[in-house]
Design a protein around this nucleic acid. Structure first.
Length: 428
RNA sequence: GGAGGGAUGGCAGAGCGGCCGAAUGCGCUGGUCUUGAAAACCGGUGGGCGAGAGCCCCGUGGGUUCAAAUCCCACUCCCUCCGCCA
C-alpha cells in the first residue's frame, strides 16, 4: 500500500500522480477525510487515556498510603473516564478499518518517467532483437499446438481428460526440455541468487502482502477447507519470506530465486489465445526477486531485466522488450517491463517475462524493513522481481523457431547439458 | 486427531496485578587504552503514531480490573510424546 502521508502532506501531488493510474479523485478525498477524522478521534482518545493512566497510579498510591476514601473517589473517576475511552476506541477502530480497506485498493504511484497510455496497445517497444519477419522459412510457420502433438511431446487432450480444459501436458523429450529450461534458468542465476523451494500453498495474509488480494481473488485457486491459496507465482511466497522482519542494510540487496509451479484460474479468458501452451491453469516458472534499499532499486531493475533477457537470448529466440505504460501498469507496480518472445508458427509475440519494481508498496503491506548502517531511521525495503524463465511460452517459441524442414525440432545448445543427450526431437 | 510444554527487544533470556517498555547476556555502536588491532574498561542502543504533551506495542483476538507482560477465555504458531498416514 502507499504511504498515507503522501496523501496527507501533498494531496494535490498524490492525486495527480495517481490520476495517471486512473484513480478516482473522490476516493482519495474520502481517504483523506477519513484519515483526518481518525487522527482527531485517536488524539482525544489518547488524552483521555493519559488521564486514566495518571488516575490509576494515584489510586494505587492512595490505597497504599491508607487513604481509603480518596482511593475510592479516584477509582470512580477513573472508571468513568475509562468508559469514555472505550467509546472513542470503538469509533477509532471503525475509522481505521475503513481507511485500511480503502488504502488496500489504492494502487502504487507510477514512476515519473513511465509513459502515459490507456492500455497495452500504448506500451512502447524499447528494444527488438533478432526479429526479421522475412527470415522465417515455411517449416517454421507451423504452430506448436500442431508440432507438439505430431512429435508426441504435447498431449493436451489427455491433460483435459485428467484435469479439464486449459491444462497442458508435456511428454517424453517435451517434458525433459521443460525441466531442462528450469534447471538452466536456476543455474545461470545461481551466481548471485539464493535458490529457494518455497511452499506453493499460502495463507490469505501471504497473498494479501503481495497485492493479489483483495483485488484478484477470482484469479487464484482457493482451498476452502484449509483456508489456503495456490500461488499464482513464486513472487508471492518469496515476498512474504521477509514479512515482519527487520534486515540490516549490509544484507541488501538480497536476491532470491525459486522454481515453482504457478496456478491461475484465468477467469474470463477461456477460448482466447489458450491453444497449446499459450495459457494454462498450471505452469512452471523460475522467478527472481530482490529486496533492496531505495537507492539500489533502479540498478536492480536493470539487472533483473537483463538476466531475464539473457535466458531467452541464450535460446536464440527473437524477442522484444516493452515498457508498460500507466494504463497497463499493475496495481502494485511503480515501473514495469515485459519481455515477449516471437513464435513464428503462431505468428504471435508471447509475453514470457514481466520485470517489476514495486518501490515500498509491497514491503509496506508485508512489513519488510531495513536498518541503515549509519543508524538512520528504519525504512521499508524496495521489492523487485521478474520471471527468469516462464516455461510454456518460451518452450512454444523454441518449438516453432527450431522446427526443421523434416519436421523435427532442434534442442537449443544451452539446454543440452540438461537433456540427457537429446539434441533433436524427431517425429515418431 | 489426543496429551503436555512454550511464544517477551536484532538474538538469547528474566520478569510478586501498580515502582515494567521491561533485568541480564550477546550483538551493534561511541570512547579510553594501543603504532594498529584484539582483549579489558566506561557509555549508548526496541518499534509504531503524534508538531508536542502524550498514547500504543511483551504471539493474535476477546474478557476481568481504577490499573494487565503478569489473572481468565478463545485462536494461531513452535517444541515433546502418543495415534494415524503418503
Amino acid at each position: 500500500m502507499i504511504d498515507i502521508r503522501r496523501v496527507r502532506d501533498d494531496f494535490e501531488a498524490a492525486a495527480a500522480s495517481l490520476a495517471r493510474k486512473k484513480v478516482d479523485r473522490a476516493d482519495l478525498e474520502r481517504l483523506r477525510d477519513l484519515d483526518a477524522k481518525w487522527r482527531e478521534v485517536t488524539s482525544t482518545r489518547d488524552e483521555l487515556r493519559a488521564e486514566v493512566n495518571t488516575l490509576s497510579k494515584e489510586v494505587g498510591a492512595a490505597f497504599k498510603a491508607g487513604d481509603k476514601a480518596k482511593g475510592e473517589r479516584l477509582r470512580e473517576q477513573s472508571r468513568l473516564r475509562g468508559d469514555e475511552v472505550q467509546a472513542l476506541e470503538a469509533e477509532a477502530d471503525g475509522l481505521q478499518e475503513q481507511v485500511r480497506d480503502l488504502l488496500l485498493r489504492i494502487p502504487n504511484f507510477p514512476a515519473a518517467d513511465v509513459t502515459d497510455g490507456a492500455g497495452d496497445e500504448d506500451n512502447p517497444i524499447v528494444r527488438t532483437v533478432g526479429y526479421d519477419p522475412d527470415q522465417y522459412e515455411e517449416h517454421q510457420r507451423v504452430p506448436h499446438w500442431e508440432v507438439g502433438p505430431a512429435l508426441g511431446i504435447l498431449d493436451n487432450e489427455r491433460a483435459a481428460k485428467i484435469s479439464g480444459s486449459m491444462f497442458a501436458m508435456l511428454r517424453g523429450p517435451g517434458a525433459t526440455m521443460a525441466r531442462a529450461m528450469c534447471q538452466f534458468a536456476l543455474d545461470r542465476n545461481a551466481d548471485v541468487y539464493e535458490e529457494i523451494r518455497p511452499p506453493t500453498l499460502v495463507t490469505t495474509d501471504t497473498l494479501t502482502a503481495t497485492g493479489q488480494l483483495p483485488k484478484f481473488a477470482d484469479d487464484a485457486y482457493f482451498i476452502e477447507r484449509d483456508d489456503l491459496w495456490l500461488i499464482p507465482t513464486a513472487e508471492v511466497p518469496l515476498t512474504s519470506l521477509g514479512r515482519d522482519e527487520l534486515v540490516d542494510e549490509a544484507d541488501l540487496p538480497m536476491r532470491l530465486m525459486a522454481y515453482t509451479p504457478c496456478y491461475r484460474r484465468e477467469a474470463g479468458s477461456a477460448g482466447r489465445d489458450t491453444r497449446g501452451l499459450l495459457r494454462s491453469h498450471e505452469f512452471d516458472k523460475v522467478e527472481t526477486l530482490a529486496y533492496t534499499t531505495p537507492e539500489q532499486a533502479p540498478a536492480m531493475l536493470d539487472e533483473i531485466l537483463e538476466r531475464a533477457i539473457g535466458s531467452v537470448a541464450a535460446f536464440g529466440l527473437a524477442y522484444r522488450v516493452l515498457e508498460i505504460c500507466t494504463g497497463d501498469l499493475g496495481q502494485s507496480h511503480h515501473k514495469q517491463f515485459d519481455i515477449e518472445v516471437y513464435a513464428p508458427g503462431a505468428d504471435l509475440w508471447l509475453e514470457a517475462s514481466s520485470v517489476s519494481w514495486f518501490t515500498d508498496y509491497q514491503a509496506r503491506r508485508a512489513n519488510i524493513r531495513f536498518r541503515r548502517a549509519d543508524g538512520g531511521p528504519i525504512e521499508f525495503v524496495h521489492t523487485l522481481n521478474g520471471s527468469a524463465l516462464a516455461v510454456p511460452r518460451v518452450l512454444a517459441a523454441i518449438i516453432e523457431t527450431n522446427r526443421q524442414p523434416d519436421g523435427s525440432v532442434v534442442v537449443p545448445e544451452a539446454l543440452r547439458p540438461y537433456t540427457r543427450g537429446i539434441e533433436r526431437i524427431t517425429p515418431r
